[in-house]
Write a protein that binds this DNA or RNA. Structure first.
Lengths: 229, 229
DNA sequence: CCGCATTTGTTCGTATGTATC
DNA sequence: GGATACATACGAACAAATGCG
């Protein structure tokens, strides 16, 4: 499960391994890490070495330590943590605009490169949305909606784009979620899903981009409305 | 210049201050930091404390220490470092595509929001390019060209977009630079500059986006050509 | 509320390796 | 090669916060 360290600085090695274990979801966000003593045995290093590795990850924003309590996972990756911190200084609208930029490009690339498998994945998402809409299950609808957008981006086949989009979406989601519980803004709209799907299916770059732009415009208006309250 | 530390962990405070000083360009990338003893006096902390702060920043990718030589600045921010590491795992084309997404959106937003001051800045960049072109000064031309693109993005007035674009450009630039010295690909092209400027001036979103797309397509072809060799 | 075990935080010392002059 | 300074890793002791019975 846990490899013995080899060369390089021991601290770096331990930190890297912990980072990987987090990225690989062995320890998920919110989870409490095993106490120092256990980790010392597993990694077979001294307490100081382990503590320094942990401290590095704390500074990077991946972990958070609490005296007497334990160490918990805060972010899934260094990029994630850095983006979170950075995005916090930005406004929601700025984040939204960047997300639009990424998704628009992704939709165009998806239209060019989509495989049959991508189309099947998208159809599954659309059906999930319909299902949630029929059941009036808002939570499922939102998560299915997000999944649909992510699947579009995934079809772009550009990992960097996918990772950046993931972060923009996460921040936006946690923001929207706070207000969604008070008053659901989305009346289970899903027309755009089908239109965008068709555009990607027909490999029509321009209209794919247009639908994303349209969808985003609606979301933007909603957020502006929320912010004004 | 350098504030005395207050509360929190001393290490965190020192690390934060160093981080800020780097972000504020007090120490630029490539610069060598003052020797430990000087920093100890300036921050008024113990050697161990300072060393730990430096180590945290090394792990974050902002600094690099070399025994006997000293510590040098590697990145301008944590986001920068995290993106660099992430981008390294991506291909050049993926980076280029993300850059296109960001710049296209930025150009559209610039067309909408540009101020008179933005237009003046852009004109300066264009003139610098012309000048470099006349002098056949490739280095100046490239840096002026990059400056022009950055100025377009800056006119979008979206700080998050600006910061992300900065990173995409940096990586791309260091890549292009390696091959540029061997054989200059760009025959000092600058037609696009003027066209894009006019589109932004006239606040024509669509044609601004189109010019960026066009420009990027040319760059993409060049890079594909390089990669094939 | 107290006392205790658990867990992280801090600081010291020591040994060994390594770069530089 | 020797001397010096620095880096790395380990260990131990004590402090402080937390949670539980």
């Amino acid at each position: 499960m846990i490899l013995k360290t080899n060369r390089k600085s021991l601290v770096e090695q331990v930190a890297e391994q912990i980072e990987q274990l987090i990225e690989q979801k062995h320890w998920k966000v919110g989870d409490k890490l095993p106490p120092e003593m256990e980790l010392i045995e597993e990694f077979d290093v001294s307490r100081n070495t382990l503590r320094e590795a942990v401290r590095a990850l704390v500074h990077a924003g991946l972990l958070e330590t609490k005296q007497g309590s334990g160490t918990i996972v805060r972010s899934t990756s260094a990029l994630d943590a850095a983006l979170k911190r950075h995005v916090k200084k930005s406004t929601m609208l700025e984040t939204l605009e960047v997300r639009l930029a990424l998704e628009k490009q992704a939709a165009q690339m998806a239209a060019e490169r989509r495989t049959e498998s991508d189309l099947i994945d998208l159809e599954v998402c659309i059906n999930n949305c319909k299902e949630a809409s029929a059941k009036k299950d808002l939570e499922q609808f939102i998560s299915s909606d997000i999944q649909f957008h992510k699947t579009v981006v995934a079809a772009s086949n550009n990992q960097l784009l996918i990772d950046l989009y993931e972060n923009m979406t996460e921040v936006l989601f946690s923001f929207v979620q706070d207000f969604m519980t008070i008053e659901p803004l989305f009346p289970f709209e899903q027309g755009i899903h089908l239109e965008l799907f068709k555009a990607i299916q027909k490999q029509n770059k321009e209209s794919a981009a247009a639908y994303v732009e349209n969808d985003m415009e609606v979301l933007k208006e909603s957020i502006i409305k929320i912010l004004k309250e």
